[in-house]
Design a binder for these strands. Structure first.
Lengths: 204, 204
DNA sequence: CAATTAAATGAACGTTCGTTCTTTTAACGG
DNA sequence: CCGTTAAAAGAACGAACGTTCATTTAATTG
């Protein structure tokens, strides 16, 4: 057989990325073969190369798309005129909400950095740093205006981000805790961790 | 050639594990071949099978040894009669200290869970849970006696652990911050995050 | 509607993979 | 010191890898 009835390039390309994502998240980039991805899409392995020049390009695109989406989504949520405390809470809720619904993307972008060749690595690392900078800036602002009390803004930012990223490793949709409860808890935890204490407001 | 002069089985086995560890940490289990490990040891790939029945067994042993060492080391540090706050601080310092000096082990035990086949996965997961239980118990105790103020002990524990595990992703021995400074900062952050506030003691 | 382009197949490429096996040699135990 | 066992080399196994290519067929374009 040859070209399939009704096949459109852009549709197939999207389908490939969509199927590759959970496979790579589950087994890891190195452990997922092009044939596995092709099988999931329902296509021959060779056909993947009509849409991507290589397996590596596919990974870079997956991670790049995710980071762009993440940064763009935060830009939409980010509102001027908030206090650092309001902004940190808003960021925590945004991060958890966004990442829980895109757990595979997040997992890959965090875990597969080492699978990237130098060129792609530099590109993704830059975006990742931009995201970290968001938290760093919020905490630094809160530190300057005296709303937060932290020893070191960088360490505090990495601590908040680390605790947030960890959510993806244990969150289960059918679990004991709802998404909004988790957001509430982490908002409180994060604010406390940066030494925010507006008349016990952080003690829910 | 055949058997090498002065070769002892136990020495070679240890050398294999030692060389395999950083390779797997850097490139991932699936991306590291038996030949790469053998080359690093200075031995033929086939010789590895005099010491391990399979690549998978090697990974399980690496992770299992690490988790055992981690749990045993904590048992030595763990002192009865501490208050929850003292114990949490002691745990944070222990975790950072131990994990910074064994970054590769920690990284592997966290990242390569998915590379484990069912049997090994169950075994390692059990040990990992035992470690998480340490933090959960400390926070639960602090919650009961009123020293900590958290919404949910489980979430608080996962948050603390997540922030601690994150340290390994950015800590550099030659970096701006010394190990002991990082311990100080994280001790303060963690205590604040669980709502410990003994007369501003947490605000260093 | 013919010509061109896009999207697929399926076979094949050379490598590399984990693992096994035979052979050789060193260490060890009586 | 001889027989046995342990530890290594090195070749070889079939399978799977990422990728290429000739070919076929559907969609698109002038």
């Amino acid at each position: 057989m040859a070209r399939i009835k009704g096949s459109v390039g852009s549709k197939t390309k999207a389908a490939i990325l969509e199927k590759a994502l959970p496979l790579i998240a589950q087994f890891g980039y190195a452990a997922v073969s092009m044939r596995m991805i092709a099988d999931a899409v329902g296509v021959n392995a060779g056909a993947l190369y009509n849409h991507f020049p290589s397996k590596q390009h596919m990974l870079v695109l997956l991670m790049s798309d995710h980071m762009d989406g993440l940064l763009a989504a935060w830009d939409e949520v980010d509102i001027k005129g908030m206090t650092p405390a309001q902004k940190l809470e808003s960021f925590v809720r945004f991060h958890i909400g966004y990442n829980i619904t895109r757990a595979d993307d997040v997992f890959i972008s965090f875990m597969e950095l080492r699978s990237l060749e130098p060129e792609g690595h530099k590109q993704i690392e830059k975006k990742r740093k931009a995201y970290e900078d968001v938290v760093r800036k919020i905490i630094r602002d809160g530190q300057k205006c005296g709303e937060f009390h932290v020893e070191d803004a960088h360490v505090a930012a990495m601590s908040v981000l680390g605790s947030l990223i960890g959510v993806n490793t244990w969150y289960r949709a059918k679990g004991r805790l709802s998404k909004s409860k988790i957001e509430d808890y982490y908002a409180a935890i994060s604010l406390r961790s940066v030494g925010y204490d507006a008349e016990g407001k952080a003690h829910v």
